[in-house]
Design a protein around this nucleic acid. Structure first.
Lengths: 252, 252
DNA sequence: CGCTTATTTGAGAGAAGTCAAGTACGGTGG
DNA sequence: CCACCGTACTTGACTTCTCTCAAATAAGCG
């Protein structure tokens, strides 16, 4: 579960949380270009970053990078939803994460990408040459620290997801997922409270939770029958009882 | 799966692989104290590190740090085996990783530890105050880069483990685990080739693979019956047909 | 509007879990 | 050194949750 627990931020690294960015007005390109980085950089530094980045936009269902490709680029999602996945020889797939505006990918690999990144919706990203961006870490240590901190957060989420995949029931998995997506929907904004917008297909949800499409669908139906959620459409869910869902997601 | 694929190392970060450490003879305290760090540091820098580190040794089954504790320390395992785990409210447990000499833990968290670390065998670690070690990243950027690179490798392993937990059968999971442990055993040294020394209990293996003890035990028996492995004892396994095991671990 | 694809629903099968019992191992004390 | 005890591991019988296969319904798109 990519659960980002709320609460005070007290990292020993000097970084600032995304929602604490306080120079949006002064830095227009920031919010447009480098969503996740602007928080720790001033306008001049963002411009420095703009020099080595280039837009990379793709339509829904297109591949941004493939498992095994030379890992030349680091990506920053600006708009849309991306899925990262790994496959077994016979085609079984595991989605290791969904990415939303502000998220990065392309760092956690050595010479080749260890996962495939695909656009779930039309996406806008900016892309840096890894070689160049890691050089920039020298000039802008706060940038390096911010990226390190994000990697660390991602590792924590990965551990949460391992607990989900290894030990939770189908029902608990789906509850966790709904809580997670409601949180993401809230962050992205533009939806009523307790709304979870699910841009991905049921198959994606299944491959994220280590289930089959049918099981996911059945669990959705069951939660709706119990009035814990309301399915406005397959991709728009209202959490009618977030507290219960939260509890069930943790096996209480 | 904490699979560290062999192959050339071409990270954009200027770090050196563990097995490329070439000043072991010149730096005695290095191999003794800071297993994973000495590779990128010279003797003087290692001494600098020694100043802020202190020994922290524990017997088998003791807790090194607990989920929810203030995350004050970063640990470097020098000797022995450690398990990291997370628990659900009702006691279901997921082991997110086993740690061996050279491994770190305690960084991937904000103010509190997000997992429990316990000694499987008697362990020797050295412990740094996170506050102090992150300060050191300023003075010794190559140290920061090395730690960042290790975090990145760990994130990749976490993704491999998600694929295992979400999509592999019990048999495939155990094959993956045996390949992984044979690799670790080789790295640690002192055992014949194709030997996998398993310091952890069957319950630990089960909680690592998202299975029950009984299922793990049955799969061990089945692999032995098929002459793919030989169980010298519950904790010492010979891989009789590593190629087949490897193939099966990837679902071929 | 018709076609394709996505989602839901149903029935049956199977892999892994649960519960229970037996066996082997390892440490401790006589 | 061996016997004993507790724990760890293995094995068996049975249950169950999730998967598989199949079909119906709904949604999206040209």
């Amino acid at each position: 579960m990519k659960k980002t627990p709320p609460g005070e931020f007290r990292s020993t690294l000097r970084v600032i949380q995304s929602d604490q960015c306080n120079h949006h007005s002064a830095c227009e390109s920031c919010s447009i270009r480098h969503v996740a980085m602007c928080n720790v950089l001033n306008e001049e530094e963002v411009n420095l970053l703009n020099e080595i980045s280039s837009d990379f936009n793709r339509d829904s269902k297109q591949v941004l990078c493939a498992e095994g490709d030379p890992a030349d680029y680091l990506f920053n999602v600006r708009e849309g939803t991306v899925r990262l996945s790994k496959m077994l020889a016979d085609g079984r797939r595991q989605i290791t994460g969904f990415l939303f505006p502000g998220d990065f990918f392309g760092l956690a690999c050595k010479d080749v990408y260890s996962y495939t990144a695909e656009a779930i919706t039309p996406v806008e990203t900016c892309r840096f040459q890894r070689r160049k961006i890691t050089e920039k870490f020298r000039e802008l240590p706060q940038l390096g620290e911010r990226v390190f901190e994000m990697t660390t957060t991602e590792l924590q989420s990965a551990h949460d997801q391992m607990l989900l995949l290894g030990r939770k029931s189908a029902r608990e998995k789906l509850c966790s997922f709904l809580i997670y997506m409601a949180d993401k929907t809230r962050t992205i904004g533009g939806y009523p409270p307790n709304h979870a917008y699910l841009p991905m297909s049921r198959a994606d949800v299944a491959d994220y939770l280590g289930l089959t499409v049918e099981t996911v669908s059945r669990q959705f139906t069951k939660l709706a029958q119990e009035d814990l959620i309301r399915l406005d459409s397959a991709h728009n869910v209202i959490l009618l009882d977030p507290e219960s869902l939260q509890e069930m997601s943790e096996g209480e």
